[in-house]
Design a binder for these strands. Structure first.
Length: 876
RNA sequence: GCCGGGAUGGCGGAAUCGGUAGACGCAGUGGACUCAAAAUCCACCGCUGGAAACAGUGUGGGGGUUCGACUCCCCCUCCCGGCACCA
């Protein structure tokens, strides 16, 4: 009769039981509670907090698994780790949900938080929940308001007008995503641009530091730094004026250009529709007035402005060229942005592509003023070199003829300066950050409007200005405007009746400093306290690449503003940054001859394959009829290609979900969803379980490694250590997919080890102790369980704090190594050489080998390339 | 349009400094076990030709550098992210 297995080590891998048990153990021992401890190096690992949209999506699972793996890895490396979690809880979707379900955004948000928190717990993340925060709580956003007032005092926050999308039917401001093809999403009305007063944060005051400090962020991906640098867009140019006389007054039309070397090629100027000169010209020109009006319709998005048809109209106003005194006509162009530079540009159609096409369209003169030797200029079509700076020389430019790009700019800037009509200037593409939103579900801007005293800041002792949580928006503007209990207040200055500001803050404000708040989450009297000094800056920040510019730039700015207010002592919030790729899945749809396209979730679709495994088609499970494939795309509601993590966890367990997420692709790349890939991950964990169960008894009682192992076992041990070496290298690169591969290879090797050979138990014992520790950051539950079951805990303690394994040279040593043998660069075989052989010895052995002799066909060797440890290439 | 990134078998991906392309896994095919199925295990598995040995070919496309190129250089195509009120 067979011996009954101990009750805690069942034959079958049952993730639900062991995961619950592991999570209960962590919870009862407060294992993830982070406590400041100056005697140990700290590691603050942060994943971007989620918007509580309802339930976790795969992107969250991926993001938080990456963070959790790093956190657990560093804990085993001896760091005092902090991994907190919170909620980016203000935002538009809550208002949309409110409209759809007639439920207040607050309630919807809090319900979502409760559900998603449960999901995060079930994934076994090593989070310190004691530091949880939600940006929609008054004790959090109070400090948004407080810092805003400090910025106002310092002149870092100020008011000016800004352009917004206006829906004339709903009488409301629309977000860019609510404008579809230039029309309001709900009303279908053509959207207008409207200028309204708004509050701005002077991020441009920090432009220079935000740019140069990128150089001090070696832990950031190059591509993110490049994107930010381009976004900030420092350009050196010349600001100068075209003088003109109008209405009996001497005026100047100021423009900025980075190509002052082409100034002699100016044939017209263009101003934005909002430019004062355009308004002045439209006053007595109805056609122009109509055109200016037309320019006000349509989207405010840069992508739309850049791709729309370039249109213009002459104003009839002429300005004088500052160097030639020629008269140049001013046009209104729909492509000139009021918000950038001076809202006016000089046009040099010969050397600017946009100006070139504009000039061709309206038959304006084109005058070549730079030349590149060997190229010929033609008015027929635009050529790339027309805009070259390198190797270009001025022509048809009078006294500037023959000068190169930089020399010409120097000379021209000096001449403009002498005439008091311009000078060199540094220009930034970065604009100040408009934070006003005409929406309800956000942080109230702490200002009061008084008829007598004007706009008055709310006194600190009256903070926070609390947002009422029972409003239900209906799409017709901010519901706060209908709330007298919020609106009515007394003026802090004169005590008279006053009205509260109803605009709320951009949600990017909320997310610009939450990482600091985690360090002092319970601090009631200060935005941040002493503990920030211990934990900050964040050692590792992890989030989607879609945040590469805005969120990360705003956070960097906010940190510098807090620093300059004496609140924190660091310059940059995130020392290292990992930008994770998106999670994608296949899109299936049917498009009936008439009617709307309908999308089908991949779970409802069955795939057809031929004998060779090639895809031949796809059918809907429900009716067996074919569906079309729309390629691969980001998981989204609109394409119905999302996979619910909850179903995955319930069917396979958290460890399988986590393992698959790490195995499927490296963190920075996109991840394609695959149901069968999940099966494979599950199979691996089952195999791990079965192997551990099979050797449990022998491993528990195993002696140490013998002096000399039989060759077969030495090879297995070498394989384990070799893969550990590889995995440690990959861990350093955050390449967790190959760490997972290495773990699989280790298990493959251990399974192949001859069971009856002397020393098998010792090799299995060492191998499993390495494998479990290596895997524990990725699949913590099963590793926690097996670590205890196999008796490792008695020696090394809880696997959470077990020392990270290192490969041993003794285990890696080999007497003989195999080198690849090439003849004329073609792979022909392999030769065995002693491990310590010199290049000369290797060459000799290779030339003498049978394979080399065969493929050299009796010809003498011209040379031999020896790459130690790799290959020999014989060239004949 | 501008800025940034990517493309490797049927699929996800690997290849550390220019040195065996396709590790590991999935799918597929054949087999073992089973009354049968599931699960599990073993073998094969880039493409073309070939019974096989083997030969040729192959990292989005075109050109170049090199004894040797997925990797470096030049040109092109397609896909993805961002573009300031989605978060």
């Amino acid at each position: 009769m067979q011996r009954k297995p101990p009750p805690s080590m069942q034959d079958k891998y049952a993730p639900a039981d062991i995961e619950q048990a592991a999570q209960a153990h962590w919870e009862s021992s407060a294992a993830f509670r982070a406590v400041e401890d100056p005697s140990r190096p700290k590691y603050y690992c942060l994943s971007m907090f989620p918007y509580p949209s309802g339930k976790l999506h795969m992107g969250h699972v991926r993001n938080y698994t990456i963070g959790d793996v790093l956190t657990r890895y560093h804990r085993m490396r001896g760091f005092n780790v902090l991994q907190p979690m919170g909620w980016d809880a203000f935002g538009l979707p809550a208002e949309n949900a409110a409209m759809a379900n007639n439920v207040p955004p607050a309630q919807w948000t809090y319900d979502n938080i409760a559900y998603m928190k449960k999901q995060l717990r079930s994934l076994g993340f090593a989070l310190d929940w004691a530091r949880e925060l939600a940006t929609c709580r008054p004790d959090y956003y109070k400090w948004n308001q407080w810092l805003f007032l400090r910025m106002l005092e310092k002149g870092l926050a100020y008011q000016k007008t800004g352009v917004v999308n206006w829906d004339p039917v709903d009488q409301t401001v629309l977000a860019n995503e609510q404008v579809i093809d230039g029309r309001g999403w709900r009303t279908g009305a053509v959207v207008e641009k409207r200028e309204i007063p708004m509050y701005y944060l002077a991020i441009t005051k920090y432009a220079d530091e935000l740019l140069t400090a990128l150089g001090g962020l070696p832990g950031w991906p190059e591509r993110v730094k490049t994107m930010q640098a381009n976004w900030i867009g420092k350009s050196y140019g010349v600001r100068f004026a075209f003088p003109y006389e109008l209405d009996g007054k001497q005026e100047k039309l100021w423009v900025f250009t980075t190509r002052a070397d082409t100034i002699m090629g100016v044939t017209f100027c263009a101003v934005a529709a909002e430019h004062p000169l355009a308004a002045r010209a439209a006053r007595d020109n109805p056609a122009l007035a109509a055109f200016v009006e037309e320019c006000k319709h349509g989207s405010v998005m840069e992508a739309d402005l850049a791709t729309m048809e370039k249109k213009g109209m002459p104003t009839g106003i002429f300005v004088r060229h500052p160097l030639t005194d020629e008269m140049v006509e001013v046009w209104v162009g729909n492509y000139v942005l009021m918000g950038y530079g001076e809202g006016a540009v000089m046009a040099v159609p010969a050397h600017d592509e946009r100006d070139f096409h504009f000039a061709k369209k309206y038959r304006l003169p084109i005058k070549q003023v730079i030349d590149v030797p060997g190229k010929s200029f033609s008015l027929d079509a635009w050529q790339e070199w027309y805009a070259d700076k390198q190797g270009s020389v001025c022509v048809h430019s009078g006294r500037y003829d023959g000068l190169g790009y930089e020399a010409a700019i120097d000379a021209i800037a000096a001449d403009l300066k002498a005439k008091d009509l311009g000078d060199k200037q540094v220009q930034w593409r970065l604009r100040d950050w408009g934070i006003s939103r005409q929406r309800y579900w956000g942080c109230p801007i702490p200002l009061i409007h008084c008829d007598k005293c004007g706009t008055v800041p709310v006194p600190d002792e009256q903070l926070p200005v609390v947002l009422p949580e029972d409003c239900v928006p209906d799409g017709s503007g901010n519901p706060l405007n209908k709330r007298p209990d919020f609106l009515d207040c007394s003026c802090p200055k004169c005590g008279g009746k006053a009205r509260r500001e109803t605009d709320t803050m951009d949600t990017f404000v909320d997310s610009s400093w939450y990482y600091s708040r985690y360090a002092s989450a319970d601090s009631a009297n200060a935005m941040v306290d002493e503990r920030v000094k211990y934990w900050l800056p964040v050692d590792q920040y992890i989030g989607g690449i879609e945040h590469a510019i805005l969120h990360l730039l705003y956070s960097r700015f906010w940190t510098k503003a807090m620093r300059d207010l004496g609140l924190v002592g660091f310059d940059e919030p995130f020392s290292r940054l990992l930008t994770q790729g998106m999670v994608l899945n296949e899109i299936f749809f049917r498009k009936p001859a008439s009617g709307r396209i309908s999308y089908f979730n991949p779970a409802e679709v069955e795939l057809k394959f031929d004998d060779k495994g090639n895809r031949t088609g796809a059918t809907l499970k429900a009716d067996g009829q074919p569906v079309e494939s729309g390629g691969i795309g980001t998981m989204s509601k609109s394409k119905n290609n999302g996979v619910d993590p909850q179903a995955l966890i319930e069917q396979y367990g958290a460890d399988t979900a986590r393992f698959f997420m790490m195995f499927a692709s490296p963190p920075e790349q996109t991840l394609e969803w695959s149901d069968s890939g999940v099966d494979g991950s599950y199979r691996f964990l089952k195999r791990l379980w079965a192997f551990a169960a099979g050797v449990r008894e022998t491993v528990r009682g195993a002696p140490g490694l013998p002096e000399k192992l039989p060759e077969a076992l030495a090879a297995v041990r070498r394989e384990v250590h070799l893969n550990l070496k590889q995995a440690n290298y990959d861990f350093g690169k955050f390449q967790f997919n190959t760490v997972a591969s290495a773990a699989m290879k280790m298990l493959n090797a251990l399974e192949r080890a001859p069971k009856d050979a002397d020393g098998h138990a010792a090799v299995a014992r060492e191998g499993l102790s390495i494998l479990l520790r290596l895997l524990s950051p990725i699949t913590p539950h099963v590793c926690h369980h097996l670590w205890r079951e196999l008796g490792y805990e008695a020696h090394h303690g809880d696997i959470l704090h077990a020392p990270w394994p290192e490969p041993l040279d003794a285990a890696l040593a080999q007497d003989e190594i195999e080198l690849v043998l090439q003849v004329n660069g073609k792979l022909r075989g392999a030769v065995k050489v002693p491990a310590g052989a010199s290049k000369e010895q290797i060459e000799e052995i290779a030339l003498a080998s049978e394979i080399a002799q065969k493929y050299m066909e009796g010809k003498p060797a011209k040379k031999a390339v020896v790459v130690p440890g790799r290959l020999v290439n014989i060239v004949v």
